[in-house]
Design a protein around this nucleic acid. Sequence first.
DNA 1: TTATCTGCAAACATTTTGCAGCGAG
DNA 2: CTCGCTGCAAAATGTTTGCAGATAA
Lengths: 131, 131
Amino acid sequence: MTRQRDAVRDALGTAEAFRSAQELHDQLRHQGISVGLTTVYRHLQQLADTGEVDVVRTANGEAVYRRCAAQDHHHHLVCRSCGRSVELSADEVEDWADRIAQTHGFSAVTHTVEMFGVCADCAAAPERIQD
Amino acid sequence: MTRQRDAVRDALGTAEAFRSAQELHDQLRHQGISVGLTTVYRHLQQLADTGEVDVVRTANGEAVYRRCAAQDHHHHLVCRSCGRSVELSADEVEDWADRIAQTHGFSAVTHTVEMFGVCADCAAAPERIQD
DNA sequence: TTATCTGCAAACATTTTGCAGCGAG
DNA sequence: CTCGCTGCAAAATGTTTGCAGATAA
């Protein structure tokens, strides 16, 4: 509803990459759009709560965000180099998870499945690898 | 090789629960064993590097540690209430992951699969739920 | 106008690092 | 004796919160 909220949504855009709050903040500043880092965090959290963006924790504990095409439950294959990601749906894995949970008597079970690798483009241009 | 290193290893013990560096530090202090928090962090990191302990990131970004029976690649089903976990091996998921990675042209692919739920014991005693 | 949103500064929590001293080999 | 290990204090990092002023409806 406000200029900043739209700015954060637009910053996420339709890009396939997961990006951190700070990266998004930098991006907006570079675009000449003045938004406080606090506000970026607040809107990302809100968007995540409504399920409009997905959040993944990187290995070092940083939260990275992406607006996904799929609204329903899915997973990601993320490029370590450029951050680009592919959305995956995996009935095979869902079935496995349900079965395992039942076998061990667990209830209210959720799961996270994230894959990290190097995409074909980045493998062809190794000098760009930065993570 | 030192008293503190053994203390950290022993603190992890053979418990099935994942615990944070700070919890382990508190535990040692309560046992009357004086170890600096810094040292706990350093040894946990070292043990994680050698694969002797597994690390999982909780939803809020905290790192939790566990010494696993299985040394090779596996996953976990973790109880949100008591932290107890079950080690899982999942050829089904490994195969799926390999196939997906190949399909999308990714290389050097790793994956994380973690399941969180409430174990049968905790479901029977809901008042203990704390997370 | 009036409730909400913003953004600075400060608080927070977790983890890492600098450095002087201790302890093991 | 020497070099690595320890642990305090301080820094670094990523994120959240208090609050006064700006802004949208």
